[in-house]
Amino acid sequence: MNKEHNKAKKFGMVIDLDKCTGCGSCMVACMAENNVPFKADETNKLDSITWMRVYKLTNGKSFPDADFCYLPRPCMHCEGEHGHSPCVSVCPATATDYSHETGIVSQIYTRCFGCRYCMAACPYHARYFNWWDPVWPEGMEKSLNPNVSVRMRGIVEKCSFCYHRYQLAKEKAYYEDRREIEEQEYQTACTQACPAGAITFGDLNNPEHAVHELKKNPNAFRLLERLGTNPKVYYISSREWVRLAGDNYLRQEGKSEKN
């Protein structure tokens, strides 16, 4: 291994649900950055590709005690045990992979042949299938980003933590004879766009990065931790019911467990 690759990074996110307003900027920033296609009718949310999806969580109570909260869900880039995230090990053609260097679950779209096993494996529904050919209205292909390839029909895709931005940041660093990049040089499109500043992105292993401290917040939790997926996206909420909505609990289990 070259020296510069010795220090393993673990890119992750901390999303402050108290700040998240559910405005959807992260979703659109992601679509615009990553050339996500759209159809005339996208109201069937079961076949609508949104790498970043904002879920609405409700506390199930009646008016006027009803409460709700938004929860943006990118790919969790699960580490599982030693990088065996739920989706990576099941891919029969090794089209998706986990990198120990960055902690990112990567994918080769051109390798994927569309068996959808990874989608079955992902409990977060973070993976999407291209049921249709991606078509842009005439003229609108001009807005496509050349740093991300357009995915063809018949394959699976998902959030990449805007890995191309990492590649570009590294290119700039190499040009300037640097081996490391700064925290601000690699930020995902959703993080950058979030008008509420609710998303923080960085290297969870690096004490100098903001996420390193934020993830230790006593109100921080991850989605479905009990499954052992070991996700790299953390959420913060001051509301207990929201924190409890992040995982499944048996009826007899005290609600105090996650205080």
Partner: peptide
């Protein structure tokens, strides 16, 4: 018919991931 890219179906053999149950199936 079920796979999204039938012409790439042979990747399951060529680029086999031996950890996948589906590879074993195939």
């Amino acid at each position: 018919i079920d796979i999204g890219q039938p012409l790439r179906g042979w990747f399951i053999f060529w680029h086999a991931n031996v950890h996948s149950m589906l590879t074993e199936v195939a």
